[in-house]
């Protein structure tokens, strides 16, 4: 386990804890964002190989050297995708929060009792 992946797991735990225990919708969305960042760190660290460099061919890394000296490009590409999706989902969550505030004049989920079982 690398330092980055440990940090990623810590962020996932913090974000999940925040999402589950906070009562304010904005704080829940912040928790989601923290967890999202943790997931990105874990995915990036999965593709990292100690001592290797970024998979970009230039003077410092010739095309022939790439398989032996570059890290895995696939997790990086996946994380780039995941960041944009995370942004879109966060925007959607925030607009739900805005809508709920407009209807109920509250962001505390204890006051929103329609979905309670």
């Amino acid at each position: 386990m690398t330092l980055v992946s440990i940090l990623g797991f810590v962020l996932i735990a913090v974000g999940l804890w925040g999402m589950l225990t906070r009562r304010n919708l904005i704080k829940i969305i912040v928790g989601f964002s923290i967890m999202d960042t943790g997931v990105h760190l874990v995915i990036v660290s999965l593709g990292f190989i100690k001592g290797r460099t970024a998979p970009i061919i230039n003077k410092a890394l010739s095309a022939g050297d790439a398989p032996s000296r570059a890290v895995d490009p696939i997790p990086s590409a996946l994380v780039l995708t995941a960041i944009v999706i995370g942004l879109a989902v966060t925007a959607l969550l925030l607009s739900f929060a805005v809508r709920i505030y407009r209807e109920k004049r509250t962001l505390n989920i204890d006051d929103i009792s329609e979905l309670k079982w």
Binding site: I56, N58, A66, A70, P73, A77
Partner: peptide, 13 residues
């Protein structure tokens, strides 16, 4: 493409 990450994003995947 020199940037292999871009190759993955735009072409392979």
């Amino acid at each position: 493409a020199a940037n292999l990450v871009t190759s993955v994003i735009v072409s392979y995947r």
